[in-house]
């Protein structure tokens, strides 16, 4: 793939699928870390553009890259060090008081879930079918269904505990 084509394709995807990238970013990172993660995902998409052969739809391709990058980013030592420092240094977050409070509480709850459940719920919230979720994650459709049921219950419990 020519350099110019790579740039064009990248621009197109970044524009068309910006919502996917933002959604995954919010599900895996909080506050200032979101921009770091978004950079990482964009970098991964940039490097993956030449390897796109059209076997999956662009959105499935981007979901996979975004999910895999977000999971890798979460595991990085730097992330843990940074969040540990922030947790130790910053006071508890103020109670949410605007119209986005419920959405923020939802994403905060999702971020508390185990990574596998978090991925499934983020895809489910984007209204992907079980088939599409299976394509992104590599799990079977029936497995996706069973896991989603459990993940939804866990999320509901977490949100109740957090008073959201």
């Amino acid at each position: 793939m020519q350099r110019r084509e790579q740039e064009q394709q990248f621009r197109q995807w970044a524009h068309d699928h910006a919502a996917i990238l933002q959604h995954i970013t919010r599900g895996f990172a909080a506050d200032a870390d979101q921009e770091d993660l978004l950079q990482e995902i964009l970098l991964a998409v940039w490097h993956a553009v030449p390897s796109y052969r059209g076997a999956a739809s662009p959105s499935t391709f981007i979901y996979r890259i975004a999910q895999n990058t977000a999971m890798t980013w979460r595991r990085s030592v730097r992330y843990h060090e940074k969040t540990d420092e922030l947790d130790a240094a910053s006071p508890a977050a103020p109670p949410p008081d605007n119209k986005y409070a419920r959405t923020r509480a939802l994403y905060a709850g999702i971020r508390e879930l185990p990574e596998a459940d978090r991925s499934l719920l983020l895809l489910h919230l984007d209204e992907l079918s079980y088939r599409e979720i299976a394509d992104v994650t590599g799990l079977s459709e029936s497995n996706v269904g069973a896991r989603l049921t459990r993940a939804r219950k866990k999320l509901a419990m977490l949100m109740k505990e957090n008073g959201a």
């Binding site: 970098l43 991964a44 940039w46 993956a48 996979r64 895999n68 999971m71 890798t72 992104v136």
Partner: peptide, 11 residues
């Protein structure tokens, strides 16, 4: 980064 486009379980 090439690996990143695989399904999560495979990656």
């Amino acid at each position: 980064y090439r690996d990143m486009s695989l399904p999560t379980a495979t990656a």
